[in-house]
Amino acid sequence: MYNCKYQTIRSKKYKKYYFCRNPKINNIINYKDCYDCNLKEYKKQKPIPNKKKKRTIATSIPKSVKEIVWERDNHKCIFCHVFVPVDCACCHFIPRSQGGLGIPENIFTACNKCHSEQDNGLNTIELEKIAEDHLKKYYGNKWKKKDLIYKKN
């Protein structure tokens, strides 16, 4: 198809054919006829919105936050204590799907293996408890789960 706004595909008795809806033609056409047509008009594409949603922005982790968390966690996975790159400081305690914010109080550092195990492994509950204790150690009594969730204004 050449994106002509008049060209459609129809079927009759389970056989497909091209049809032109242009008022001047309004008939069955060959595919090549549409290509050579002088009356062709192209479909206008809808503009793609460039603005991200507020929740998406609030739950994503900026590079500055990753660096803060990575330094706080001494460049190590909080579970197995292996040295990891700054990109591994991207684990949400409260998951993004549940509105977990991309703030240092909700983020911790974990290697890929431990992160996968914490997200959907057999030891998820135990690893979440370790992560919760780790975050409470740094933020004390100020750290509350309800403050880590995105709230719609």
Rank of each mutant, 00 (worst) to 15 (best):
N106K: 01
P47Y: 07
D33L: 07
Y35P: 00
S116N: 09
D147C: 02
F19A: 09
C4F: 04
D33N: 09
D36H: 10
K15G: 04
N26Q: 09
R10T: 11
K51E: 14
S116D: 14
V65S: 02
C90A: 02
A110H: 01
N112S: 12
C88R: 01
R10C: 09
A131N: 07
N153D: 14
N38P: 08
K32A: 11
V69R: 05
P47V: 09
Y2C: 08
W70G: 01
Y139K: 12
I29W: 08
R96A: 10
K13Q: 12
K40T: 13
E105H: 11
V84N: 12
S97A: 11
G102Y: 00
T109R: 06
S97Q: 02
Q118A: 06
H81F: 08
G100H: 03
V65L: 10
T59D: 06
C4P: 07
N153P: 13
H92M: 04
D33P: 08
K15F: 08
L135Y: 00
N26M: 13
N141F: 05
K137I: 04
Y14Q: 14
H134N: 08
Y139W: 02
H75R: 13
I78A: 06
Y31E: 15
T109K: 06
K146Q: 15
C4T: 05
V86P: 03
K151Q: 03
C91I: 09
I125A: 13
D87K: 02
K52W: 08
I48Q: 05
D119K: 13
V84H: 03
N27Q: 04
N26W: 13
E126K: 15
G102W: 03
S116W: 06
Q45C: 10
F108P: 07
N153E: 14
V82M: 15
K66F: 01
P104I: 01
R72Y: 01
T124Q: 05
F93C: 10
C114D: 14
N141V: 14
K24W: 00
K53D: 11
I149Y: 03
Y18W: 04
S97M: 05
Q98L: 15
K12A: 03
N112E: 02
N50P: 07
K76E: 10
Q118P: 02
R96C: 07
L39C: 00
I107F: 01
K66P: 06
E71P: 03
I48M: 01
Y35A: 02
I25D: 02
C90D: 02
K152T: 00
I29C: 15
P49C: 13
E128Q: 12
T124Y: 05
K152D: 03
D87N: 11
R21V: 10
I25S: 09
C34H: 05
A89G: 01
E126W: 11
F19N: 05
F108H: 06
G100V: 08
I9M: 06
N22H: 09
L39K: 07
T56V: 11
K43C: 06
N50T: 15
N141D: 14
Y138G: 05
D133T: 05
D73Q: 08
